[in-house]
């Protein structure tokens, strides 16, 4: 039953039709939640007693950082599914995620350094989290570079899936080694943001923004997958039928 649903959903024409119907609803939800989240974060939430108003970048920074890791896992899992069951859609989702994930990682790094300047007094510190985020960006760049380097897109998808799976095994090792490295070398010199339990008015917009980022990712992923499907299946019969309907 479940597998049948998966097979049905992952057939390109079905996916194309249903994602087309889904997109307007998702976009509407995205804009409503974005407006609420931004208003809640920038206006309603009280200023932090230590950091003043500059803490408000948290509403972009933290969701972006969460997304950067979430998307890597999505990429690896869907790549693995594509590798095992040869589902075309899984391959497309896997590579479609890569550049979105890289963008979110970059966004998290940029907002982090913008935040770091007033808080830590430096644009960049070799803090464990910053460093592992930077390494994550490199991993994304490797995935994107490998995909663009291989001409045959199905082979490229499989190569990317292998690399993403290797990366996903490595990420915890990298993360903990970097954390250990940092505590060994610098100890208490890096001012860690000691977070007191967060105020509820601050927390709700943060969670909303996290949801907003997820929806945004989903929208972009659908758009990219639809494009990629059209490109890869350009000889498919269902695309001819689609074009007839449009004309």
């Amino acid at each position: 039953m479940f597998m049948r649903f998966i097979y049905k959903f992952s057939s390109p024409p079905y996916f194309y039709a249903i994602s087309g119907k889904l997109l307007p609803w998702l976009s509407a939800l995205f804009f409503v939640l974005l407006a609420y989240g931004l208003y809640g974060g920038l206006v309603i939430a009280p200023a932090d007693y230590q950091q003043g108003d500059s803490f408000r970048i948290i509403y972009v920074h933290v969701p972006a950082a969460w997304m950067s890791m979430f998307i890597y896992v999505v990429m690896a899992v869907s790549g693995g599914i594509g590798l095992v069951w040869r589902i075309k859609l899984a391959e497309i989702v896997s590579i479609g995620s890569a550049s979105v994930g890289a963008s979110f990682t970059f966004l998290a790094l940029v907002t982090g350094s913008l935040w770091g300047k007033p808080m830590w007094g430096a644009w960049w510190v070799w803090d464990a989290r910053l460093t592992s985020e930077l390494v994550l960006l490199f991993l994304y760049l490797g995935v994107i570079g490998l995909y663009n380097g291989i001409e045959d897109k199905r082979t490229a998808s499989r190569a990317v899936a292998i690399l993403a799976l290797v990366g996903v095994v490595n990420i915890p090792i990298i993360h903990y080694s970097v954390e250990w490295w940092n505590t060994l070398h610098q100890g208490a010199t890096v001012t860690k943001l000691d977070k007191p339990s967060i105020h509820i008015d601050m927390l709700i917009p943060l969670l909303v923004m996290a949801g907003v980022f997820k929806i945004y990712y989903f929208i972009v992923l659908l758009l990219r997958s639809r494009n990629e499907l059209l490109e890869r299946e350009s000889n498919g019969k269902w695309i001819d039928e689609l074009l007839e309907k449009v004309n």
Binding site: V135, L139, G145, I174, S177
Partner: peptide, 10 residues
């Protein structure tokens, strides 16, 4: 180099 160096970090 791009693929390998991040994995060499630990």
């Amino acid at each position: 180099a791009i693929l390998v160096l991040p994995l060499y970090v630990p």
